[in-house]
Design a protein around this nucleic acid. Sequence first.
RNA 1: GUGACUGUAGCUCAGCUGGUAGAGCCCUGGACUGUGACUCCGGUGGUCGCGGGUUCGAAUCCCGUCAGUCACCCCA
Length: 432
Amino acid sequence: MANLQAIRGMNDILPDQTLSWQYLEARFRQLVQRHGYREIRFPVLEQTQLFKRSIGEVTDIVEKEMYTFDDRNGDSLSLRPEGTAGCVRAADQHGLLYNQQQRLWYQGPMFRHERPQKGRYRQFHQFGVEAFGMAGPDIDAEVIQLAALLWQELELTEYLTLQLNNIGSAGDRKHYAAALTTFLLQHESTLDDDARKRMHSNPLRVLDSKNPEVQKLLTAAPLLADYVSAESKLHFAELQHLLTAAGISFVENPRLVRGLDYYNYCVFEWTTDTLGAQGTVCGGGRYDGLVEQLGGKPTLAAGFAIGVERLVLMLEELQKIPASALQLIDIYVLIVGDGLAAQGLELARELRLAYPRLGVISHCGGGKYNHQLKRAFASGASVAVILEATAADVTGVSELKIRRLDDSGESVTVPVQAAVAKLGEFLHISAS
RNA sequence: GUGACUGUAGCUCAGCUGGUAGAGCCCUGGACUGUGACUCCGGUGGUCGCGGGUUCGAAUCCCGUCAGUCACCCCA
C-alpha cells in the first residue's frame, strides 16, 4: 500500500469528517428545497468543448487547470472544473429551459489541476444553484438571500462579507477592454511582465494585479463603470435596493472581476478572512448569454457556487458544528457472558424500533465487562444498557441495567420487559 | 506552473558533529476474584517516503523523485 496513494490534491474524507459534511449537506439541501429549487445531477465528464465555450478559451481554468484527455474514440473529454456549464447543457438538452422558469440546484465534485493549498484542492466539491428564465434583479436578490440564509443557519454571518460589482454586458466589456488596452499600451513601460501579458489576452484581469506600481497606474485608467450600459446600472441599483430592504449588507467592489467569461450585469462573492489565502467561499452572478452561447434559445440566468471544503473548514475552525450533529450513537448495549447474543440483538432491534432517531450499537465480539464498558464510553453513547448472564442464565436474563455513561455512573436495574420504556424516561424522550 | 518549509511505529514526536532505531498516546494482556478514564508491570507494531550517490558503515551528508503544509497565481 505504501506506494499506492491518493492522487495529489484529491482527498479522502474520513469518518471523523463526514459527519461535518453531512451536517452541512443537510442544511443546504433543506434550504434550497424550501425555496423551490429542485436537484439536478449531471456527469462529471463532458466534451471539452462545452467548458471552452462557456468558461472562455483564455481563462486560467481552461488554459491550464482542466483535466483533459482523449476518449478511446479520440473525442476530447474533460472533468468538469465547475458546475454551471454542465447544468446548462443538461437542462437545455432535455428541454427544461424552453420558455420556462427553472430553479435548480446541484452538488458534487469538481476538478482543477492547481497546486493544492489550504482550501484549494484538485478534487473539490461545490453546492450550486441556478435559476433560469427570470429577468431579475429580484431573482438575483433571491439567490443572494439564499446564501445569506445559509450563513445564518450555520452561524457564519459575522465572518463573511458580500462583495458586489456590475460588470455590464459582454458588449460593454468589449468596449471597455479596448479603451483599457489603449491606456495600458501608453504606459507599457510601468507594467510588469504579468500585466503586459494579460493586457492582450484578458485586459480586465490587469485590474486585480497585486503589484502596487500597477495599482498606482490604474488609478488613472478608464473605469468600467463609465462603459456599462444604463440598463445594467438600473438593474444593479435595483438589486442593491432589494438587498438593503432584505437587511443584507454588502460592499461594492469595482475591482471584482470574476474568472469565468460568461457573467454579465451583477457578479458577487462572499469572502472571509478566517481561511488564509483562499477567502472566497461563494461566488456567482448573472449569465444571461450563456445558454444561447451554447446553442440554446436566449435564456436569462443567475446562480452561484459554494466551496464545500472551505465551508467545512470554517465550520470546524470556528467550532460551529452542533454536538448533536457529531453524536451518532446514543445507546450502547453490553452483552456480558455467553448465550446472550440472541437476546442482545433482539433488545437492540426493539430499541431502534421504539426510538428511530437514536443510534444503537450492540456489542459484538464478546469480552469482559470492563472491556465492553470502555467501548461504550469510546462510542460516544450517552447511555449503556447492560445485559449480563450469571452462571445460571445461559440463554437469557430477566433483568438488565441501564447506566448513564458519564462520571455520575447513575444506573437503574429493571425487568427486561420494561427496558424500552425505562430507557425513554432515562433519556427524557418518548417512544414512537 | 513558481517558491519556502517538512516527510522516523496507527497518531504526536526524539534521535547531537554518520556506527544498522527510541518515547508518549492508542491497542492488547496482567497487577486489584468485574463497572471506562488513575497508578504499576508486560506485549503487538517501523522497507527511517521512494530511488540513486559518497563512505568500511547513512535515519543522519549529496542528488533526484514522490507526497504534505503554507504562500504566489487564480478561484469554490
